[in-house]
Nucleic acid binder design. Sequence first.
DNA 1: CGTGTTGTTGAACTGTCTCAAGGACGGTGG
DNA 2: CCACCGTCCTTGAGACAGTTCAACAACACG
Lengths: 227, 227
Amino acid sequence: MQHAKSLRPTEPGSGVRLSLNRQQRVPVVPDGMGHVYIVETGVLMVEVLLQTGHRQILEILYPGDVFLSRDAPILPSTTLIAASAAAVQRLRAELVDAMTQADSEFGRSIASALALRSARRSLHLTSVSVLSGEERLADFLVETALFLSKPAGRGRSFELNLTRQDMADYLALNPDTLSRMFSRLKSSGLVSVTRGRAVVPDWDALCRTSPMAAPLTELRQRLSVTG
Amino acid sequence: MQHAKSLRPTEPGSGVRLSLNRQQRVPVVPDGMGHVYIVETGVLMVEVLLQTGHRQILEILYPGDVFLSRDAPILPSTTLIAASAAAVQRLRAELVDAMTQADSEFGRSIASALALRSARRSLHLTSVSVLSGEERLADFLVETALFLSKPAGRGRSFELNLTRQDMADYLALNPDTLSRMFSRLKSSGLVSVTRGRAVVPDWDALCRTSPMAAPLTELRQRLSVTG
DNA sequence: CGTGTTGTTGAACTGTCTCAAGGACGGTGG
DNA sequence: CCACCGTCCTTGAGACAGTTCAACAACACG
């Protein structure tokens, strides 16, 4: 992806490139000024665990996304999990500052990526807070499709990298309920899922059931333009 | 508050100081690189409205908090609302960049405030997603108390600036349910509320009912130390 | 001291969760 | 290639938390 490429540091050896297998976990530990993670390929989840045993997927990161370990909640359990095979650049925050001094364009693209991610987090909170389960699922499908696929005629098709449990923990539902909603969505013909790949025959129809479709689309477009 | 003071720009006239009355609204409109809002006194809410008519309070801002208009969701309806009388410094983002160049300490305190706010947002999402209504309310009370009061003996007392509707829209509950939960909390003796002022006689007891109490406390301490 | 707004409470309803059983799939070893 | 296993997914029936609606109480303001 073009956007990810423009964020790649020019000097080799200035950071670490992490190649992650599916389900591989990277603990996010506070460490001085912290680290900057830049997603190059693949899909990551940001997980927190509560003392109560509850698990929450805070957000999903796509290629081009930038994650700061400093932003992580204080909970000691914040972890990045690769939902698919993924490549991530990890840089020390001081280094990113220095690179920004040298190349203001670089700093601007980092800031832009962070702003868009922040906006996406707000949309997700809103989706989870005020919408019904089915609407949240539709929002999730729209989000995933926007970041992982291109329009193909009237429809779209894309990988569903998350397990039911992951999606449930992201959407604040339980896996059983989520499964039921998937079944309803399938029987209504809006999506079909085979071997982890989702096919949406009529994109506009899906968007009509997703209250966040419009802002998510707008946001996705800004990412491509800005990056 | 000490932290807010250190964020105040040195040159006068370099930004606008907004003095807001209770319930006064400030639309957040995208505008070039955007604006930086620094809360000096009072409590603000960040509101979004959906086409569906739903309303969501995304987060609550306290003195010392920094808000970037760029981070706002793309929804055209993002608004800052003063929950109490408030004073807010508004600066153009370019200006903040320039000030950061001149005074790296200033930039660091902005970045620190943003990181802590981001962590708070994650905690709020988690609270709303996985916890019961009563736990969310306890979390909200702990958050408010931490930011608006100091320990007084074994307890704390602080202003509840938000209306029931505001709290409900923040906690993803409806006002009726929230009122019931307040009643239960009152009859259990954990809090008492008179004329918008909450009194918590036993702070530790409240914290025991709030799953987020520990991370919120940790976060609050970092704000005072860093600022 | 009305009048409008905001908060409280009850009773019925509904969406989501829980628990438990069964089914589909993917890998492994015979 | 098939039988086996574990894991993930699906589905039903019952329970429960939270919502809805409506009536009433408390409060703030002129």
